[in-house]
Amino acid sequence: MSIVVRSRREMPIETEDDVLVVRRAVRDLAVERGFDAFASAALTTAASELTRNVWVHARRGTAVLEDIADGDRVGVRIAFRDQGPGIPDLDRALAGGFSTARSMGLGLSGSRRLVDQFQIETVVGEGTKVEILKWKGL
């Protein structure tokens, strides 16, 4: 896979408004790239979950939106980074189990099911990075 990044946009996640701003930017990018309603809803919802996670648990972070291509395929890749508390029981969170922070469990595992690629790195006490990728589809 040789991914070409056609455009890149870094957005802050520092207020509740930013959650909506990031979500709209993701939707606009998906629509612009020709994602159909289902793919666009899936990507936007995953992005909304992950942005909200940063806002709720870390209070501060960034979302980096990339418009990407790999040969004929076009897609969107988004990386969410924060220096928040990290996720203590990642396996359980990814399995959709409710952790102490109820909102995180299903949002994380649910998001994974909506995208084509999902990678997460987290260190308790240091922060979390989640990267998702969704191709436009046929």
Partner: peptide
Amino acid sequence: DMVDTYVAR
């Protein structure tokens, strides 16, 4: 046009 787990809840 979007319902995430927050809105659904």
